[in-house]
Design a protein around this nucleic acid. Sequence first.
DNA 1: ACCTGAACACCGTTCAAGT
DNA 2: ACCTGAACACCGTTCAAGT
Lengths: 210, 210
Amino acid sequence: MAERKDEILAAAIAIADERGLEAVSMRSVADRVGVTPMALYPYVGSKTALLDAMYGRIVNEYVPDLAAAADWRERMRSLATAARSLAKQRPWVVSLMLSRPSVVLDAVRVTDALYQALLDAGVPDADVPRIERLLSTFFLGYSASESGGRFGARTQNPRGSRGQLPEGRLPGHARLAPWLDQAPDWDAEFDADLRDLEALILAKASRHQS
Amino acid sequence: MAERKDEILAAAIAIADERGLEAVSMRSVADRVGVTPMALYPYVGSKTALLDAMYGRIVNEYVPDLAAAADWRERMRSLATAARSLAKQRPWVVSLMLSRPSVVLDAVRVTDALYQALLDAGVPDADVPRIERLLSTFFLGYSASESGGRFGARTQNPRGSRGQLPEGRLPGHARLAPWLDQAPDWDAEFDADLRDLEALILAKASRHQS
DNA sequence: ACCTGAACACCGTTCAAGT
DNA sequence: ACCTGAACACCGTTCAAGT
């Protein structure tokens, strides 16, 4: 009985990997399992529940082994990097993460790991939940933007009423042109962002100790 | 002719406001305009193009008047606050922002305003594009998390294999329990986040001047 | 120039029925 | 216990036809 549900989940994930989340329908999943759409309902409940289950299973696979790294910085980095590589390999998971409350149990485990990293860094208890949200929001947003294509926009032609980028009315873009024309190295950028955020965390921590 | 397109856009936005983005279909929009679904195509091209057009129109309405505020901090705050209140009043816009490249012209104008705020703050030119992405990613992610329900999760029961939150295996949650049980004030939290990010920006700026 | 109607290949889900 | 088949109320889009 649990086997059947696993089979259904695996089929749904395979379809999402191959043809995207919008190709996952009760009909397409049922087809792959070799059964009628209605046969799925006793196992998955509804389409929404199926999506939740897919999310939970994937997050669970990607959560890095956190006991391994002793330094809070390393643990934070490995969590952030896991989110990012998850988004890169399975972009459809990001849509799920942002479109529904993160009540999936495996997601809560990740939150807990970040809590502990911040506590170890010396952030006062009262500030930890907020800083955790700040960080996870950024990690999620970065992953979503990168894999969703929001970052790659500059190279494309803006879709506007006139279709052309009016550089004259965009003084910031004009001044920064030399840095905007070279395509960024997203790995390096994420690294630099992490360093800046580590500094932010340490500032919170040292203010506490003094 | 442009009138007809405006009428279609207004109908689509009204439906999204009233019944969510998923209620926006070519059929429902056509119904509201009092026309057949096929009559929309000459004006909007496709459903995707219709969504883009909705996005552009809304962003345009919400971009705050930036010439007004002299201080870069105020300008940054008003941009961030605009994003957040947009997300609160029209949650469906956030899905659009994250699910497609931000090539809509009006969105580029917002980016430019943030560039200028950072330049005025004294951030070195070479760092501005990255920091702008860091900030806009956070603003977007925060807005999405808040309006999409990702933040509200703690109060609900986590959906997991067992259905109950196993506090024993979540030491971080256990230690932070006193601060996790009181529901956060999201306005105050966003304010605190903005202050932390301003400090991050000033650190980048002063390192440059020395 | 602007719109309609029928059609095609899809959706999630309910309900009664089969073995 | 597990699955099917028909049906309902939906999708986006193409294509030929009407005025």
